[in-house]
Write a protein that binds this DNA or RNA. Structure first.
Lengths: 150, 150
DNA sequence: AATGCAAATGCAAATCATTTGCATTTAATA
DNA sequence: TATTAAATGCAAATGATTTGCATTTGCATT
């Protein structure tokens, strides 16, 4: 049960680390530490600090990406070369992936206009999924209701 | 010293609330609660809970927008109709605004492809500003270093 | 296979931005 | 000016994430 990805790093092979990686590899969308814990707990008991430390170790080595979403939580995903963004339902939190990234061309313009060296971007879309459009479920409570996502 | 914006709401006019609004109106870029406090403290002593409560009250009424950035902090700005995004230096945190939003056309496609009703988006660019490109300042510490901003 | 040592882990406590409960003050209206 | 609900300050609570420290584990070396 050696893991190819970990072999390329200075990190040790551990059952927990390998499990975290395989969870991320199978995930259709970015996951929070809590979601990873929940999935992992079906196989192994492991503490939150282990999850966070593993994820940070992998993020430091560019094996996973770490992005904060508008819900204030960090989401982790395996760094494939395919660059993806997500569209998240503001009612049920269901998340789907978007393949096309429309920003690359803009970035080069931005670079020449600003003289910044562009290193990346963060993009999320919000909406209401088909299921929630038909149901009349309520909004989330105001503290977590972002009125505009610029 | 009546404030036009507050007059349109059910909120009371207070010196502190009006000050917060004028700070946001003059700000060239979105501000954190802490930055607002710092600016406000030159004129009035006020507590963090007041700042946060005022900002949330205004956000609930769509007068300011509230967006979390990759540094994990909430940034607030007055809701003008001009829809803006920012480009932030990953070294010195200097932030400049971008006027053109390239996403509107994509959103309508996205809507027909996914059947989600798109309600908004969040977009940030990261880069290194001209000043920091010439200086050899170090990276931030790893816990706060987001390796990829998808 | 046994040993040594640095890295990984678990637990509890710390952190940090933000929110909240409660007692006090203030704005708006009668 | 008196009334009352909303605004404020303070300290404590919150919640996701990080960290210190003692213990365990992976892995290289005998």
């Amino acid at each position: 049960m050696k893991n190819k990805i970990i072999e390329t790093t200075d990190l040790k092979q551990t059952k927990k680390r390998n499990l975290i990686i395989s969870i991320l590899e199978e995930a259709p969308a970015p996951l929070t530490a809590e979601e990873i814990m929940e999935i992992a707990s079906k196989e192994i008991k492991m503490s939150f600090s282990t999850v966070y430390r593993a994820l940070n170790a992998l993020a430091d080595r560019n094996i996973v990406s770490k992005t904060i979403y508008q819900d204030g939580k960090l989401y982790y995903k395996i760094q494939t070369h395919s660059h993806q963004h997500v569209l998240k339902c503001i009612k049920c939190d269901e998340c789907i992936s978007i393949d096309a990234c429309p920003l690359e061309s803009l970035e080069s313009n931005l670079c020449s206009e600003t003289n910044y060296k562009i290193t990346g971007h963060n993009l999320e879309f919000f909406g209401i999924c088909p299921k929630c459009q038909s149901s009349n479920s309520n909004h989330k409570d105001s503290a977590n209701c972002f009125t505009c996502h610029n």
